[in-house]
Design a protein around this nucleic acid. Structure first.
Lengths: 212, 212
DNA sequence: AAGAATATCAAACGCTTGTTTGAATGTAAA
DNA sequence: TTTACATTCAAACAAGCGTTTGATATTCTT
């Protein structure tokens, strides 16, 4: 029999996916355990293999980059000024990475597994990272102009992604250095504004150097 | 009997430390196994617990941030121009993170464990990350002037470290996106120059905004 | 209501992990 | 040489892992 929305089966699948996203984003693929995921989902240990075949399969299905893609799509239709669009992108991306209430767990998993390849890395690169680089590359091209070299432009993309991801990666450390720190909406907006200002100044300098 | 330099004992300890640095920097603390470390060091599995008490103890002793500290110390005595010193720092730091022949493995371990806390994180924060932030904070203060706020300055530190560490973190991904990529001395120097140019433009913009 | 397909569960399996053990070996002082 | 200590080693241990099993419960079709 096929699945239907709202059945107990679907509920278990969905609970497993949500629990898996939490665990994977908090502890990484290796660090997360099937048993803890099932405990969170209030189901049996065998459920993962029944519904997803394996821990790998669960990770693959837990990854959902639709919000990331939707954000890029909406950005393209927003303001015409590319600098404003870059500011919007950085803000939305930082919210996905840091916001406690509405953050995108798949994006956090992506951030985590940048450095730590798992069987799902190919899918992550194909569906999330490569499109992200392409999107940012085109956006920065609009800002930097045609004179800027391809390699230079790609490094600007790295500079922006590096800044954004650092706030996610270094969270455990920052909490030890500054225990009072909390990433509420106000703080995230301030951080995003800083990254945008810092980066736009950097890009404009690079493009000016290339124009000479 | 106490240890003496050059005895077989010392050699085993040293071989274990070197093997551990390789494994920890490549696979992280969780991913590295005591058995593989001992295989590399050509010794028995029990050697780790005999010489270091535990896998945790081995990691703690494998961390050696002397090169990182020496680099900061030498930087302070170098050129008087803080902008030049920032360029030097970024270049040296990128070499530690990326250079295949002379890179600092403890620095790579530090980079890896930023996001993935282990029992050694406290030591890493105390001995490496906190001093690094302090060093960069003072250096940027010289460049940005007194008008720039403390929070803004700290975000500039994050922007620089984020850019540098991204090249290490994203290495597995970059190799899939651009298989030809190799981080030889020339490429590292080019990356370091980009980060320095990009960041100095960013800092100067931030400090100019604060001066108004 | 009866039967077939689907889903859940407790229990166990096979494997790997970090760690411990106790004997064997090497080394230096008495 | 003898004694005491330091080091190495093969083997085993206990715990945790992802996965499998076979029985039980649930759900849908006829």
């Amino acid at each position: 029999m096929m699945h239907e929305a709202g059945t107990a089966t679907e509920q278990t699948r969905e609970r497993l996916l949500n629990a898996a996203r939490e665990e994977f984003s908090q502890h990484g693929f290796q660090g997360a355990t099937v048993r803890e995921i099932c405990r969170r989902a209030e189901t049996n240990v065998a459920a993962v293999n029944y519904h997803f075949g394996s821990k790998d399969g669960l990770l693959a299905e837990a990854l959902n980059f639709a919000p990331l893609k939707a954000m890029q799509l909406a950005n393209g239709k927003a303001d015409e000024d590319p600098e404003v669009r870059l500011r919007l992108f950085i803000r939305d991306f930082m919210l996905m990475l840091l916001d406690e209430t509405n953050g995108s767990l798949p994006c956090r998993i992506m951030a985590r597994e940048l450095a730590d390849p798992t069987p799902a890395l190919d899918k992550i690169v194909r569906e999330a990272i490569a499109p992200l680089h392409e999107f940012l590359g085109k956006l920065l091209r609009e800002i930097a102009g045609e004179k800027t070299g391809e390699a230079e432009l790609r490094r600007c993309v790295h500079s922006i992604l590096g800044q954004c991801l650092y706030y996610r990666h270094s969270h455990p450390v920052q909490q030890r250095l500054h225990p009072k720190l909390r990433y509420d909406h106000k703080e995230i907006a301030a951080v995003a504004k800083h990254i945008a200002n810092f980066s736009l100044a950097g890009i404009n300098f690079i493009s000016k150097s290339a124009a000479k």
